[in-house]
Design a protein around this nucleic acid. Structure first.
Lengths: 149, 149
DNA sequence: GGTAGATAAGTTGTGCACAATTTAATTGTG
DNA sequence: CACAATTAAATTGTGCACAACTTATCTACC
């Protein structure tokens, strides 16, 4: 007995969700060897991006920007600290808060990281306009998905 | 001394990669409560989707379809097996291969899973045409990123 | 000013992702 | 036939993601 394809079942290659999942994995895979040279993982790089923009940031603020909770961030920040890129200090005004500061070494890293986004754009095989539109569509999609809950 | 935003540093909200990462997390977050009712995680659901299309499949074939290696699939399949949705059997022709079969219970699950993709489309806030185009763009992007390595 | 509720960060436990290694079976080549 | 190279799956180890819970601090309200 042969198994006919179940055409009524949801098909993998029809699913936007799987396309997102695959594209996201492929993009971080392109970043990985580049980030390896800096000693960072992709989520660690995201935290550094936020800190390079403005600094210091509390754990809560980092979580808000990145959509991550303390269960993810606490150990990640501990690793960034032991790598020497950030420092964590209890806030004096509000002792519940932990402020994350860049070290000199963490600040210096930004110079080496500047070329990274370029490399994804080069590998993407899409025009600048397409990338822009993709980013915009994804932004709207993410916002809609968040507000649907 | 104030910290001026480093406008020359890569900005988080400019990065397609972060948009992909966020959208992918948001999409699986929408799926999560629905899949919870089936007792599946999102990656487990992906494996079931492949098996519902055609069955049995070797671990290698599943990995090829989903872009996952045995390090991810072996324990995942063990969990699916202990949930009673699949069975794993050594192939007789090639004893290196392990074939993954659906159980009756695993086959039956597809009926309950049929409504799932709809729910993402509803929550997405994008038109069908936009979703189609997004899927197509993501497909090209993923292919380009893979071939760039 | 004391206490209930809210908030911030950390911890624990489960599962996924991926690199590196291991073991076993198969294939190709002399 | 022998045996080196390849292939398939599993295992080990590290790190992320997230739910559930804990601890400590703060705020609001009586």
């Amino acid at each position: 007995m042969t198994d006919a394809p179940r055409l009524n079942a949801p098909r993998l290659n029809r699913q936007v969700c799987f396309a997102l999942y695959s594209a996201s994995k492929a993009a971080t895979a392109v970043y990985r060897p580049v980030l390896d040279e800096l000693g960072l993982t992709y989520p660690q790089y995201l935290v550094m991006l936020v800190l390079w923009e403005d600094q210091p940031r509390s754990v809560r603020e980092l979580g808000e920007e990145l959509g991550l909770d303390s269960g993810t961030l606490s150990p990640l920040l501990k690793r960034l600290e032991s790598l020497g890129f950030v420092e964590r200090r209890r806030s004096a005004e509000d002792e519940r808060r932990v402020e994350v500061f860049l070290t000199d070494s963490g600040t210096a890293l930004s110079a080496r990281a500047g070329a990274i986004p370029r490399q994804l754009a080069d590998a993407a095989g899409l025009s600048a306009a397409e990338l822009d539109q993709l980013r915009e569509t994804l932004g709207r999609l993410t916002a809609a998905l968040h507000s649907s809950r």
